[in-house]
């Protein structure tokens, strides 16, 4: 269970107010999409969640605890670019997190423990469709593949929250569509919270279960920097109750399928499926 709370958060750079009065409660397993015009502070919002920047006022709580003052392993991240390490192979990139966690001094594992991590990494790479590229370097991959690698690299740490900063902004439309499917499947499978910043409205509404728009509601022509952006609208695009009931139905179908004797299943998959449907 992960709950994120923004409690009256402000972010100012000197005289310049970027964000003001941000109040938000995000429940577990939500997919929050943050939209807004360029320069409205979307990325600042994400950076605060990442502890790359600290709020000037107010506080951010994760599971009731104040957020750590520096980036930690409970929040994974995928940036638009540069989120993979060019000097490691694809497999090496995915294995970095677990190896760092297990070996503080060398940052490398050997023998059986290494093979175990390798197996986990390969499973994830297979999941994101990069298994056959495991020995390549990131520079040899296309943009979409690099982003899939960045996802796998973050997911192997099993973060509570996954932060995405315009992750598909640099991809072509076809690749972007594939990435949408992959991300929403991964979100469902790993039952985690995702916060995604995007400037693409259809993308926000397609993926997000909740969409917030960040914008400056007030403007002072004499001193435009004195009013910051805030959450101006907050849509629940996919009702939690609908999602919960759908998941429940899926689980029940699975359970009923398990009750069906194996002989029936082998006799014909279609008939067994029909049986479950009734």
């Amino acid at each position: 269970m992960t709950q994120i709370i923004f409690d009256d958060v402000w972010k100012e750079y000197g005289e310049h107010i970027v964000l003001e009065r941000i109040n938000l409660t995000l429940d577990d397993h939500e997919f929050l999409a943050v939209i807004g015009p360029s320069g409205a502070g979307k990325t600042t919002f994400l950076r605060m969640l990442l502890s790359q920047e600290a709020p000037t006022r107010g506080r951010i709580l994760i599971d009731g605890e104040p957020i750590a003052p520096e980036p930690t392993a409970d929040r994974g991240v995928v940036f638009q670019r540069y989120s993979v390490f060019p000097h490691r192979t694809v497999l090496g990139n995915v294995m970095m997190g677990p190896q760092w966690a297990a070996s503080p001094l060398l940052g490398r594992l050997f023998g059986a423990r290494r093979r175990a991590v390798e197996e986990r990494a390969m499973a994830l790479l297979t999941r994101v469709g990069l298994a056959e590229h495991a020995e390549k370097y990131p520079a040899q991959l296309s943009g979409g593949m690099q982003q899939r690698l960045a996802l796998a690299q973050a997911l192997i740490m099993k973060p509570k929250v996954l932060l995405l900063d315009e992750p598909f902004g640099a991809l072509d439309p076809g690749t972007r569509k594939q990435m949408h499917e992959l991300v929403s499947e991964l979100w469902e499978e790993n039952a985690m919270t995702i916060v995604m910043v995007t400037h693409d409205l259809p993308e926000a509404f397609l993926l997000g279960t909740r969409v917030i728009a960040v914008e400056r509601p007030r403007k002072d022509p004499q001193a435009p920097e004195r009013f910051g952006a805030t959450i101006v609208s907050d849509y629940e695009t996919k009702c939690r109750i609908v999602r919960d009931s759908r998941r429940f139905e899926a689980d029940r179908a699975q359970a009923r399928l398990a009750l069906v004797p194996d002989s029936l299943l082998s006799a014909g998959g279609t008939s067994a499926a029909a049986l479950v449907k009734d």
Partner: peptide
């Protein structure tokens, strides 16, 4: 900066970032 932040979200210490991210590059 993205790389350094990413390394931190993967749990790297300063020493691990120096040996694993900075030094090889």
């Amino acid at each position: 900066t993205e790389q350094i932040v990413k390394a931190q979200t993967l749990g790297a210490s300063t020493w691990q970032m120096i040996t694993g991210v900075i030094l090889p590059q």
